[in-house]
């Protein structure tokens, strides 16, 4: 099994994601190569909670321009993890 800290890159805190926290859904940026099962295990291992569902999506990179050169930012994978109802991840609030 891969190191869970390599699977989860960082938490995502935005208006949309903070709204979903109320429903027990937490959002992470995860390794591009990670699959749902790995993500589930990683969250359970690090935060000692039970994960009931994982949704993932690939986020496209954005076109960035600097003067006449142009390039793309990296693509990345976003995962929305649903916890067993009643459980929370304290690192997100406080």
């Amino acid at each position: 099994m891969r190191n869970p800290h390599e699977v989860l890159v960082k938490p995502i805190v935005t208006e949309k994601s903070s709204g979903m926290m109320a429903e027990g859904k937490y959002t992470f940026k995860v390794d591009k190569a990670a699959n749902k099962i790995e993500i589930k295990h990683a969250v359970e291992a690090i935060f000692k909670v039970d994960v009931t569902d994982v949704k993932t999506m690939n986020m496209p990179g954005k076109l960035k321009r600097q003067g006449k050169t142009q390039g793309m930012t990296s693509e990345w994978k976003k995962a929305i993890v649903t916890l067993k109802s009643g459980q929370t991840l304290p690192i997100f609030d406080e």
Partner: peptide
């Protein structure tokens, strides 16, 4: 970042 101006929740601001 991640919030429109004035929309950030209190704990995020405090953090």
């Amino acid at each position: 970042p991640g919030f429109r101006k004035g929309k950030a929740p209190r704990h995020v601001v405090e953090r």
